[in-house]
């Protein structure tokens, strides 16, 4: 008995050593590999949260599909929202390899246990929001996600490579919508400015709390779930986006924003963290609508999924009868 325990302990130690060595050597961890429980849990949390963000993210833009102003824009928007569904699909599949089912993940989303990106709790009020979301929200997502293409967990890294390619296409498409508006009538320019005013600050919040407030960063850095801090990523986004706003002829809604020649970066004003926490805790403008839309889709779809399972079972029964005969 004691021997057995000793052997188990030694085995565990050697597996831990193999795991640590892989991480240190920049090798991928694959689903069949041994991994510490904490690694598994952290990845389930992050990947499922990311997957949920993709599918909840379909809703604010889906809100404008029927009202898109031209056939070309309608097709592009449909395709974009469909891409987000595809991202959700790869990410759920990547997460399933860690031993959690899609049903469980949905339950966690519907019950509020699992989070998704707070940005999708803001309403889409005009067509210009389709431009602003592509430009800013997909833009911020890319900055958050490009480093994940090299993350340590193989299925997540590979999903991210595909996702990032499409996100940069979305970002260009969004910027092009903004450009068209800004080259249009005064009413269109006003619409674009209004969208920037509403989406700017929530986009900055997409990088999460400031570094001194954010938890478990060190562990995440080691596992390559994170390579830069929230504040570094946010700064990168601002530095990249402000000149793009200048080209559009739009004003970023921040009176403290100015280029700092000493640092080579933009200084910017104070983020309203109370608003951030309000939305994270479930009290944003659209938290309730978004969750209930997802829940309704799932609940109303139950009979459909049941039918598909029942049908498939009947078919395989028939196959077996055929084989037996």
């Amino acid at each position: 008995m004691e021997n057995q325990e000793k052997m188990n302990k030694e085995k565990l130690k050697s597996m831990e050593a193999i795991f640590e060595a892989k991480i240190a050597n920049d090798e991928k961890i694959e689903p069949k590999d041994w991994m510490p429980e904490k690694y598994r849990k952290t990845h389930i949390r992050q990947i499922s949260q990311h997957a949920h963000s993709e599918i909840v993210g379909m809703l604010p833009e889906g809100n404008w599909i029927t009202r898109a102003p031209s056939l070309r824009r309608k097709v592009a928007l449909l395709a974009k929202v469909q891409d987000e569904a595809g991202h959700g699909l790869y990410l759920y599949s990547a997460c399933e390899t860690l031993g959690i089912s899609r049903e469980e993940m949905y339950d966690q989303l519907h019950s509020g246990k699992a989070k998704y990106s707070s940005i999708f709790n803001y309403p889409t009020l005009t067509w210009a929001d389709m431009g602003a979301i592509g430009w800013l929200v997909d833009g911020a997502a890319i900055i958050n996600q490009v480093p994940l293409c090299n993350t340590s967990f193989g299925p997540y890294a590979r999903a991210m490579v595909r996702v990032c390619k499409e996100e940069s296409f979305h970002q260009r498409q969004g910027y092009e919508i903004m450009m068209t508006l800004c080259n249009g009538t005064q009413e269109q320019k006003d619409m674009a400015q209004d969208a920037l005013n509403r989406w700017w600050w929530p986009s900055l919040m997409m990088f999460g709390p400031t570094d001194d407030e954010s938890t478990h960063t060190e562990q995440s850095m080691k596992w390559k779930l994170k390579r830069k801090t929230n504040d570094e990523l946010r700064q990168q986004f601002i530095d990249q986006t402000v000149p793009q706003a200048d080209i559009l002829g739009l004003t970023v809604p921040d009176l403290d924003l100015r280029f700092n020649n000493d640092t080579g970066h933009y200084d910017f004003g104070k983020i309203d963290w109370d608003e951030f926490w309000q939305v994270v805790k479930g009290h944003g403008r659209c938290n309730k609508e978004r969750i209930s839309a997802r829940k309704n889709a799932w609940d109303n779809g139950k009979w459909v999924r049941d039918a598909a399972v029942a049908y498939a079972e009947k078919q395989s029964d028939k196959e077996e009868v055929k084989k037996a005969v």
Partner: peptide
């Protein structure tokens, strides 16, 4: 197009959007 994001599964959502 009205259905995008509201289907019974992600797979049917994607398929119906494709048809659209």
């Amino acid at each position: 197009g009205e259905l995008c994001g509201h289907g019974p599964t992600l797979e049917t959502d994607i398929a119906l959007t494709n048809i659209s």
